[in-house]
Design a protein around this nucleic acid. Structure first.
Lengths: 208, 208
DNA sequence: GTCTATAATTGGATAGAC
DNA sequence: GTCTATCCAATTATAGAC
């Protein structure tokens, strides 16, 4: 990319300092992708922030796509590990849905306070992604939706969740809202808003 | 951009052939932005599709930001003109909301059948936008939300719409869903899905 | 208005010394 | 593992002929 200015945003980072260079590269790459997109950052940007030369990055990740793919796999693994621990835990489906919402909110806030989620960004840029990355993004979305579908279906059976229509379409609608709201909220600059929107989604699904 | 391959998607274009070069450039630029993002296309890509040299594009739009800004203004004007004619028309708020949904669906389908909306894309890439473009995007979102808020508030008063919580948060939630669903649906490749998701949103807002 | 030519810069990636 | 040096292609943009 050429025109874009890489500006600093205030970070509310709760992230641990990277132990080694490879980890540091991955962390910085995630920040850059989440803020500027996969077409909006370069190895030079990473090098500047990590404090190495861009040639050194190629040693760890031969191509930019390799880097994005490794990062995508890591992010997906971490997310679904958290999601799994929610699903196998105790509590009603409504309570589990609440924890799932929290997962998104944390992801949003932690991601630089000025970001949309990692996969939300790659999803928007879907048309210009490498095939392997595109597959990874598609899988992230479809896995979220299928697990969310199972959850709210359970909630309807046990009576803790109430919604009209099919569980699967409802799940897609919820997931779309969580992803879409990140874009809307970021443009408004009012980060507090995200939590309030989630609260509204909760009202639409749980209370009726 | 470097890695991305500019692939052809099947177009369901209902768009008139451009009358002059300037218009043609704008039309092609919109297609490219909607598919690959504002960081994912270049003047060279436009030149190839329009059949002119890239230097010629600079005569019409000195910089890339100028082009994006002009396009953004045009798209916003056209969208709000349509939205206005819906709002001042006859019918219940529920019926007007329906027409608003249709506006999004048309926008999605017409935009190459493989796109997310123009402002949805710029919103995702918000962090790397020029200030003027960022302002334009922010305005598009906030105007949508304020008008949508007024509409559903009216619907609640007249009894044609039913939803829990505040009208404004509900409007943000709806708008977020409409934008977010474009990303999710595109990644899945199942375009028909968009209409079904909108139907589900309708059920969540209208039926209870 | 469009072209050729070209400048100036950045981007992704490699070779080989240390 | 990191560096310098370098390559080549792409990108944004301008100058000036037609």
């Amino acid at each position: 990319m050429a025109g874009a200015v890489i500006k600093e945003f205030p970070r509310k980072s709760g992230k641990a300092a990277p132990k080694n260079v490879r980890e540091h590269i991955l962390q910085v790459a995630e920040e850059l992708i989440v803020q500027y997109g996969s077409n909006g950052f370069s190895y030079q940007h990473i090098a500047d922030r990590v404090g190495i030369r861009k040639a050194s990055i190629h040693h760890h990740f031969p191509t930019k796509n390799d880097l994005i793919l490794v990062l995508g796999q890591m992010k997906a693994d971490a997310f679904f590990a958290q999601m799994n621990s929610i699903m196998v835990g105790k509590g009603s489906a409504a309570e589990k849905l609440e924890l799932y919402f929290n997962l998104f909110e944390e992801n949003f806030i932690r991601g630089c306070g000025a970001s949309i989620s990692f996969f939300g960004m790659l999803g928007a840029e879907f048309g210009s992604q490498d095939d392997r990355v595109a597959t990874r993004v598609r899988l992230f979305f479809s896995e979220n939706i299928s697990r969310l579908t199972a959850l709210i279906e359970e909630g309807r059976k046990e009576g803790s969740l109430h919604f009209p229509g099919e569980p699967e379409l409802t799940a897609v609608a919820i997931f779309s809202m969580l992803e879409g709201a990140m874009i809307i909220v970021r443009a408004s600059g009012d980060w507090e808003r995200y939590g309030e929107i989630i609260a509204q989604v909760r009202r639409l699904i749980v209370s009726p």
